[in-house]
Nucleic acid binder design. Structure first.
Lengths: 317, 317
DNA sequence: ACCTCCTATGAGTAATTGCCCATGAGCAAA
DNA sequence: TTTGCTCATGGGCAATTACTCATAGGAGGT
């Protein structure tokens, strides 16, 4: 995953080829001859530009069906905002589409003139969204992570997105210098009382807008896959009615945070208050249906970015 | 030009198809079967989405701005090619950046398989560019100098670049065995009628590509600094509207060669014909703004390598 | 100095896309 | 109803693009 930097000019070339191809609309043959390389090399540069996410495509048209679904959802659940993107029935990706839409929404918030605090959770979907962000300069804003950046084995949590975000967005950013899960409620108390952590928690509580992924439970869910919970712990949770999690905070089918030993060990900041702050959940996909519904009805989130299929499910239940 | 709005659903479909194509990365065949239409219709929807600018493509890389500027310049002045490099506001160098870019361009030409004639002018910028060239073997090409290699005091002209070029590039090279300035139009006639000079002039007129610097006038400009003109001659020229020179050929603010005693004494080859040959000007910097602009509008050159700041100036005037 | 491994490159080929044309449906005017 | 026009459609085909494979060049290790 680490990017090769041994040929720094190569990305420049890729950018140039990608620009000529996508923006200027030249063919790869023309690009090849203007850049003095072979057609195949031109093709490689173009796909490199795509692979490196130098090329950002966005669709600038409200699709009527999506808008309508969004409106209905917003009314039904009293949400602050809902964004629906088209479903792609042929893809099993849990990020495609909503990542771009979330990136656009993040960008809109960051382009506001007045200083804001933007909080981010964690997860693959959010990571994919942040990867879509363009370079932005917004020194007036603050970006804070709700979740710790250390995994159980002591390494940096890959899906902690604030570092990726810092690469793209020039703003003050505040990681949470904590593990994701600690060993006991007491340890959490102790860590949270440290000055550095306290001030980060304080900032997060003042968040104007928060972007969070919504994780489903299950042995294939992120908490297990990323090694935060053992299989038997997961089974125990699910027996107790848990259906989803946001930033590690586990909730049941009504979206109520569970009162159990796991939640006592979650070191994440509390989700910013939904009455004073916009908390946008980003998630789609059948496996997440129950978790998303619970997060909404339990008001763990008050805004949503999802896809058509998920929206239709939410309207039927 | 007015778009039909009688089928409002059509743009939605276009948006959906465009989304599936560009964001979800599906093929048009897949889109067609998903949407229940023929492949051709899917293709039409996708191109409609592009034509209606529903699809916004953005390149997130520093050189994107340069490419965009270059494109605008190329269109505005009908240039064959334009290359813009990032400006370095902290540097007052008139060569940094464009020298490397020019070297890359020279290299691209020299790597062409078919034999070409490459002509070079003179000047510090071009010298810096040639110094960036790697060792190349291209015995099939010919490299010719447009300008003489003897200064008024009889020594070799330091900024005559063909000798530096010969060090790096193994090709047949043709210096111009003349002074830069002669004493009269008659002397020029006589010298140009020599067999050796005539054949060199003949080669230069067949140049496929020409690289020239653009000199500004003024008592700090190259013509004065290098001792080709006296201060009072320079003042006289500037009173007559001269703003710049290429290979010693002095032109006014409209890029028209001046009809005066100095130009009659310039022994350089004529600039190769711009309708049949690519003549690339290499220059940047505030002091050269007027000269560059004149060279372009007067079509002394038909291609340009410069930096962002200069490009922005050229777009505003 | 030699060897090995890795990566970039170019050719060939399959897949995909863009374009032109003939056709026919829809619609307005006669 | 007929006529004439426009425009979407789908087939066919040429152009363009993506992928696979074998090879060459170069860095790094022995």
């Amino acid at each position: 995953m680490a990017k090769r930097t041994d040929t720094p000019g190569r990305l420049d070339d890729a950018a140039r080829a990608g620009w000529l191809y996508y923006v200027a609309g030249r063919t790869q043959d023309e690009i090849a001859s203007t850049m003095g390389i072979s057609r195949q090399s031109a093709q490689r540069l173009v796909s490199l530009a795509v692979a490196e996410k130098l090329i950002k495509v966005r669709l600038d048209h409200p699709i009527a069906a999506c808008l309508e679904l969004g409106n209905q959802l917003r009314k039904k659940f009293d949400l602050r905002s809902v964004e629906i993107v088209p479903s792609d029935p042929g893809s099993s990706s849990t990020t495609i589409g909503i990542a771009e839409a979330a990136a656009a929404e993040i960008e809109r918030w960051l382009k506001r003139p007045e200083p804001i605090v933007l909080a981010v959770g964690t997860g693959r979907t959010l990571k994919a969204a942040v990867d879509q962000l363009p370079q932005l300069e917004c020194p007036e804003h603050r970006i804070v992570s709700l979740t710790g950046n250390i995994t159980p084995d002591g390494s940096a949590a890959y899906y902690n997105v604030i570092f990726s975000m810092a690469d793209a967005v020039k703003a003050r950013h505040f990681p949470m210098p904590l593990p994701v899960l600690v060993t006991s409620a007491e340890e959490r108390e102790m860590l949270h009382s440290q000055q550095l952590v306290r001030s980060t928690l304080e900032i997060s509580s003042q968040s104007d807008v928060t972007f969070v992924g919504i994780g489903e439970l299950g042995i294939d869910g992120p908490l297990c896959v990323d090694g935060f919970l053992e299989k038997d712990e997961m089974m125990e949770l699910m027996r107790n009615g848990a259906v989803g999690e946001i930033c590690g905070w586990i909730f049941d089918g009504d979206g109520k945070l569970l009162d159990n030993p796991i939640n006592e060990r979650v070191a994440s900041a509390p989700i910013p208050p939904r009455d004073s702050s916009t908390v946008i959940g980003i998630a789609k996909g059948k496996r997440k249906f129950k978790a998303i519904r619970a997060a909404i009805v339990g008001r763990q989130i008050n805004a949503l970015i999802t896809d058509e299929a998920t929206a239709e499910f939410l309207l039927t239940v």
